[in-house]
Design a protein around this nucleic acid. Structure first.
Length: 428
RNA sequence: GGAGAGAUGGCAGAGUGGUAAUGCAGCGGAUUGCUAAUCCGUGUACCCGAUAGGGUACCGGGGGUUCGAGUCCCCCUCUCUCCGCCA
């Protein structure tokens, strides 16, 4: 949600931001609605002031036994005007909110313009692409050959875009999540949280998935929604609250299941577990002071990268262009891991600074020291990392010619010391 | 699923038609060798105003009655307690 005062003060800057997002200028229309709404509000308030004053006199008159009919008649005469102004203020406000809540966040100054993925800018490349003396396979071939990744069983249970894991691969999912959570909580200062995955509509409004992107989400018959990411629950922990400045930054992490309908992705990544309706992810969220969110984005991206470094997975970082960035973000880094089976880099994490865009929607504020009033916090979210995709990356980068997969050193303590996942791998 | 109770500011907690007590915490200020204590101020959002200042709304949400609603009426949501079922 955008700040009306900012639009009033810098309408050109607002329109330029919209234009970079590929949208037509709207400040003139918004400011017209805004000034008409304020005029109605002011007129209403003046009538209410009068009504309150006269009502007081009525009370005083009645107490002293005087006749109050003339005063009562005066208030009666105000009623139509009050009702009219109240109605038009409400209508104009609703129109304004409906317009504003559908607009995406404005892009940061330092991100590239562009229409889509091809215009993202590579920031850095880490690690050498894994070399093989055989033709590396894709993860689904490896997993199915190991007998531990079963798409057929999942299809019988649920349909397309689900997977069943068994044995060492099932444990690998848990090992990866535990490794990531330990790293973020013990070394990166995040607080581990367990949240619901079923939420009410308001939570999804706060982070910006609703009302615009309902078709991407699953919803239950009794009107709960399944979270597409723990960003929703972790960020909304700050909703409707006023934090003390000393409580910032608040860094949280959670391992949850995520649910996405993938409505717009028909035919894309249909094989394997790259794009699933249900997957698990370790999410990082940070609620910061407005002055610190830019630095925090760099820090958070580094936290996600550290997972890949410790797992020995090659990757690159790209900064998203205006056309590829999500609704609530003002700046986003994607981390793309090298997948030798596919021979390409694929997204494994996305770290975004949302500025005060989500905070404004969910009324998340803090109280500045030595200042009157409150200010909106800034919110950031990032995957640290998507567990299923990390498994894909481990399988493809650590595969051996004989079809087995070497367990990365960092994961062995979490796998009961297991060094290789093979056809007959003990579950340990 | 059945029965009942409740929702008031950061927290606690009064308030059954006359315009939100009080306590605690936090923050700002005063006082003070230091600390403690004490005293004063301080809810949130919005509108008008160059400023000083003035005003409106908000007692879970939405409607209604009334000159006037935290208080009365209607609808909804949520929370809690007991019983039943249940991981």
């Amino acid at each position: 949600m955008h700040d009306l005062r900012m639009i009033r003060e810098a309408p050109d800057r607002f329109d330029q931001g919209l234009q970079r997002r590929g949208l037509a200028p709207l400040s003139a229309h918004i400011l017209d609605l805004d000034s008409r709404r304020r005029a109605a509000q002011t007129a209403l308030q003046e009538m209410l002031t009068r009504r309150n004053a006269v009502s007081k006199q009525v009370g005083a008159a009645k107490r002293s036994g005087e006749d109050a009919d003339a005063l009562i008649a005066e208030v009666q005469n105000l009623k139509d005007g009050i009702a009219d102004n109240e109605a038009s203020e409400k209508a104009l406000d609703a129109e304004l909110v409906e317009l504003l809540e559908g607009l995406p966040n404005l892009p940061a100054d330092d991100i590239p313009d562009g229409d889509g993925e091809d215009d993202n800018r590579e920031v850095r490349v880490e690690g050498e692409k894994t070399a093989f003396d055989f033709e590396p396979k894709e993860h689904f071939d490896i997993g199915e050959a190991l007998g531990q990744m079963d798409f057929g069983a999942a299809a019988r249970l649920s349909g397309a875009r689900f997977v069943v894991l068994r044995g060492a691969l099932a444990r690998l999912e848990r090992a990866l999540a535990a490794f990531m959570l330990d790293l973020h909580t013990q070394e990166h200062g995040f607080n581990e949280i367990v949240t619901p995955v079923l939420v009410r509509e308001e939570a999804l409004y706060g982070t910006g998935q609703l009302p615009k992107f309902a078709e991407d989400l699953y919803r239950t018959a009794d009107d709960y929604w399944l979270i597409p990411t723990a960003e929703v629950t972790l960020t909304n922990m700050a909703a409707d609250g006023i934090l003390d400045e000393g409580d910032l930054p608040s860094r949280m992490t959670a391992w949850t299941q995520c649910f996405r309908s993938e409505a717009g992705a028909a035919g894309k990544d249909t094989r394997g577990m790259l794009r699933q309706h249900q997957f698990s992810k370790v999410e990082m969220v940070c609620v910061t002071h407005p002055d610190n969110s830019d630095a925090e984005l760099e820090r958070m991206t580094g936290c996600a990268e550290e997972v890949l470094k410790r797992l020995g997975l090659p990757y690159r970082v790209v900064v998203l262009c205006t056309g590829d960035m999500g609704f609530g973000a003002r700046k986003t880094y994607d981390i793309e891991v090298w997948l030798p089976g596919q021979g390409t880099y694929r997204e494994i994490s996305s770290c975004s600074n949302c500025g005060d865009f989500q905070a404004r929607r969910m009324k998340a504020r803090y109280r500045p020291r030595g200042e009157k009033g409150t200010r909106f916090v800034h919110t950031l979210n990032g995957s640290g990392l998507a567990v299923g995709r990390t498994m894909i990356a481990v399988l493809e980068n650590y595969q051996n010619a004989d079809g087995s997969v070497t367990v990365p050193e960092a994961l062995r303590p979490y796998m009961g010391g297991l060094e290789r996942i093979a056809l007959d791998a003990p579950v340990a």
